[in-house]
């Protein structure tokens, strides 16, 4: 390994790598935020929906969780364009990761809600809270605490899955790295570097998750 050559090339490539990292972060944040919002609704429908709705949502969850993310990405990019919905590679990729994220969050939310004792809902009802109020003030705060560790885990999965967007030509960190490697022939060095950056990203996410967990834990 030629360290000084690597550092020189790393400095030369800093802008394209940074822009790749920016895209990776943007993709991950967008997918996790949108996927979590959608996922809460999925979890709610699973827990409180009518029978037919639960059936449809169960299909939705099982289909998305049973499909490799890679295939989801290709499907969002190609199949949607056949039916006339022409998304850019970036949009299609975020859509695929959002759907994937929502199915996981939906399942987590469902699990957390059903783990809250029935008595909590009844107590909330008996002091006169409506369903919406019960959810917001009683169920959600308890469910969120339960969800957090698994949810952080999902977020790190999304960061890792974002590398798959390179297949449809989104220049995120991995593809940006590969572009530099193809020019410099320093494959080992730059792959190690990219791996380190991904580790760092996920490390930060996990530490942030732990910190929040400690802050909001119920005595």
């Amino acid at each position: 390994m030629n360290f000084s050559l690597f550092l020189t090339e790393l400095w030369n490539a800093r802008l394209s790598l940074l822009s790749g990292l920016g895209d990776t972060i943007l993709i991950s944040v967008a997918s996790v935020v949108l996927g979590s919002i959608l996922g809460v609704f999925v979890g709610l429908a699973m827990t409180y929906g009518a029978k037919w709705l639960r059936f449809i949502v169960r299909l939705y969850i099982d289909f998305l969780r049973g499909t490799p993310v890679f295939v989801l990405i290709l499907a969002c990019f190609y199949i949607l364009s056949v039916v006339g919905l022409d998304l850019t590679a970036f949009q299609a990729g975020v859509l695929a990761l959002t759907l994937f994220c929502s199915s996981h969050v939906g399942e987590i939310v469902r699990g957390a809600l059903s783990a809250i004792p029935q008595g909590q809902t009844e107590a909330a009802k008996s002091i006169g809270l409506t369903f919406g109020q019960t959810f917001v003030y009683v169920l959600l705060p308890q469910a969120l605490r339960q969800i957090l560790p698994t949810w952080v885990n999902t977020a790190t999965e999304i960061v890792k899955a974002s590398t798959l967007l390179s297949i449809i030509g989104v220049v995120e960190l991995l593809l940006a790295t590969q572009q530099v490697i193809s020019r410099t022939y320093l494959s080992l060095e730059f792959y190690l570097f990219a791996g380190f950056v991904y580790f760092l990203l996920n490390f930060v996410i996990e530490q942030a998750g732990r910190a929040v967990e400690r802050r909001i834990s119920i005595p």
């Binding site: 008595g119 006169g128 809270l129």
Partner: peptide
């Protein structure tokens, strides 16, 4: 909504307390 309002007219003490832990 109507039902929620009526429930607030009564008080109920549960066998398992059902306090909100958070």
């Amino acid at each position: 909504r109507e039902i929620a309002r009526q429930r607030a007219m009564t008080g109920m003490a549960f066998q398992q307390f059902n306090l909100f832990p958070h």
